[in-house]
Amino acid sequence: MMETIQSFMTAMMNSVSEIFASADLTRPTWSKWIFMALAGVILLGSVLTVTSRRILRAATFLFFTLLATAGLYLLLEYEFLAAVQLTVYAGGILVVIVFSILLTSHISYRFDPPPVWRVLGGLVAAGSGLLLTICVLVLTVFPKGVAAPAPDMQQVGNALLGQDVHGYVLPFEVISILLLACMIGAIVVARKSREPEASQPDKTE
């Protein structure tokens, strides 16, 4: 038992030192600085999103997190994805969320802090999951890919309508139905109706 743990620990240490060696922190470059800054914003933003006691602030922190993620995509030279992230996530989803917050909550309202047992439970569950995932990831040696240029818009367009292997016309069509169905569903649920509610007495009222 002890030996297994010991060998596991040495394997972990070796992998970690290897990763840091490949990072070569003694020679800082621009991309490393940018990555660290973005990672800092993402981590801080995520933590504050879920712990902030004012909901509008939480939404603002989420906005910064999403922005930093778009920056990450830019760093990886996926400009198109960064643009999509900004327009759909930061521009679309977040605006909808902020709207609904303003519709449903008071600006000055503060949440009660969650009970201690729930925080502890959350910490244990999420923490152990994170620890396990990181251990597995660290121990995995991923194959080194060859650096290839990021896709340009023409390639993206062709692949999106391609019918062969690595063509995405079918998902593209199916997702249009998905959006239609979601639109109908959202309208049907949120639409104010003028119907008489008396036809069946509501037990909550």
Binding site: T49, V50, A126
Partner: peptide, 9 residues
């Protein structure tokens, strides 16, 4: 996992 934590608390 921060998201998971937030979903729990």
């Amino acid at each position: 996992f921060i998201g998971v934590f937030g979903f729990i608390i």
